[in-house]
């Protein structure tokens, strides 16, 4: 069954049909939000919220558009809201989130988050730039599609991409890691 059939079933009052959509997108959405938020726990919470919001607003979804773009746009907005709330909280309490506050993540992703390269490199890139990177390199989206997801212009996406690459090149170069040359090998991350 394709997505539109599942969506139709959900709209006809069968919430169980939504399980298929959750199953299809949950890992990709959590990965996207993990790259945006920098925390596995926050990424799972935000992904749950995004799915619930998508269910609630499914009646407003224009089926001529891509469901993935729509879902990722909701997730991006939830992620940015969460980041703003966390920033306000830390500003109020006068402390910054330390790496030790991050909960342990399941699977191999914990290794990425705990690796020194993550905090050193991706931590220097803004949330918008991280989102563009994740959508470009994980999801294989084009600039126009990313722009639709993030609610900005195509040229803004290109600037974010250039900025992110520039920063990554600088940081990875400082860490003794080549960037943009040849295919990366698995396990190349220090």
């Amino acid at each position: 069954m394709d997505e539109n059939t599942w969506i139709e079933k959900v709209l006809q009052g069968d919430p169980a049909a939504f399980e298929s959509l959750v199953g299809k997108y949950q890992a990709r959405l959590v990965a996207f939000l993990w790259n945006l938020l920098g925390s596995g726990e926050d990424a799972r919470d935000a992904a749950q919220d995004a799915f619930i919001q998508a269910y609630i607003k499914l009646g407003q979804f224009d089926r001529s558009r891509s469901f993935r773009s729509w879902l990722f746009a909701i997730a991006f907005n939830r992620g940015i809201d969460l980041l703003r709330r966390k920033r306000s909280f830390h500003r109020f309490w006068g402390r910054e989130a330390s790496a030790g506050d991050q909960p342990a993540a399941p699977g191999g992703a914990a290794a990425i988050e705990d690796s020194p390269i993550w905090g050193q490199v991706l931590g220097r890139v803004t949330p918008q730039e991280r989102s563009v990177l994740a959508l470009k390199y994980n999801e294989g989206c084009e600039a126009a599609e990313i722009a639709a997801m993030l609610g900005c212009s195509e040229s803004t996406v290109r600037v974010h991409l250039l900025n992110a690459r520039r920063k990554l090149k600088k940081e990875l170069g400082a860490a003794g890691f080549a960037f943009g040359q040849g295919k990366p090998e698995a396990g190349e991350v220090p």
Partner: peptide, 26 residues
């Protein structure tokens, strides 16, 4: 090309099941 510094879907997929929590929310 980008070095594998991003969290990818295949790395988080193991043991991930959001449906029970999403169902409760729905």
């Amino acid at each position: 090309s980008l070095p594998p510094i991003l969290v990818t879907a295949d790395r988080v997929a193991a043991g991930l099941d959001l449906w029970p929590a999403v169902k409760r929310g729905i």
